[in-house]
């Protein structure tokens, strides 16, 4: 089963992988925040962010191809939200391509949405591809992200593929009995399957809780170890944060 869907490449060895989860989380979130607050015409700033993403990716040995493919997940959202804007936008300067009229302001909106969402998603993919998921959750905890959130995420990481497996088995059992989807039928059977998966998951949750309670779980989740940030972690974090801020603040002078 493809358990590496969430944190594929997170076990590579590279200077980026070796950094503390907190350093990476802070550094990449600073890029995201700087990026989404940058005015759309600040071309230099966007080049700086893109440059940072490229440099970090190269240093991490995560294949660019993989990064680009995963980034495609936001394309549908961009399509839905922004792709028609250049054609619908009224007023202001416009460019004519044959029978097409494209609003310049609209194009700027499209560029703005695309550049910002792609940069943000690239940062998140980099974070999860260079950090082993349990370490990432641990880093979040040390950054005082609520324990409830990290616990739920950890359970999801542990169990989502078991649930996927279960769904797969049910699908096979269904198809083995000559199921061929006629539309209304199909909807009904899919409904049954979802209900059954839900019940199974709930039952599993109950068993997991029993196993936890058996080992003295009392609602608080004690921590195993507290890694420390080293010099390399600080250097990485300060370098990325400073570069991103230079890009962001350069806007003020131009």
């Amino acid at each position: 089963m493809k358990h590496d869907f969430i944190d594929r490449y997170s076990k590579l060895e590279s200077p980026v992988h070796a950094r503390d989860a907190r350093a990476k989380t802070i550094a990449l979130f600073v890029i995201i925040i700087a990026c989404v607050t940058t005015p759309p015409r600040a071309w230099f700033a966007f080049c700086v962010y893109a440059g940072l993403v490229i440099v970090i990716t190269a240093a991490s040995r995560v294949p660019f191809r993989y990064l680009l493919t995963r980034m495609m997940v936001v394309v549908p959202f961009i399509l839905v939200v922004a792709v028609f804007v250049p054609f619908m936008h009224k007023g202001g300067a416009a460019t004519h391509w044959g029978w097409l009229t494209v609003s310049n302001n609209g194009l700027l909106v499209l560029w703005n949405v695309t550049a910002k969402s792609l940069t943000s998603v690239a940062c998140l993919i980099l974070l999860t591809s260079t950090t082993h998921f349990p370490d990432l959750m641990h880093g979040f905890e040390q950054l005082h992200v609520p324990r409830f959130f990290t616990m739920v995420s950890s359970f999801m990481y542990r169990y989502i593929f078991i649930i996927v497996d279960e769904a797969e088995r049910m699908k096979r059992a269904r198809d083995s009995r000559n199921y061929h989807g006629k539309w209304l039928w199909q909807a009904k059977v899919v409904g049954y399957m979802i209900a059954s998966l839900f019940l199974r998951s709930q039952e599993r949750a109950e068993h997991v809780y029993q196993a936890m309670a058996s080992r003295g779980f009392d609602g608080t989740y004690p921590r195993y170890s507290e890694p420390k940030m080293g010099a390399g972690d600080y250097v990485f974090m300060i370098f990325v944060v400073a570069t991103a801020l230079v890009g962001r603040l350069a806007v003020l002078w131009t």
Binding site: P134, R158, R204, H207, A211
Partner: peptide, 14 residues
């Protein structure tokens, strides 16, 4: 010490 039948119930940590 209670060990459950299904190890996926018992092993819940990453």
């Amino acid at each position: 010490g209670l060990v459950f039948q299904d190890p996926d119930d018992q092993l819940f940590s990453p």
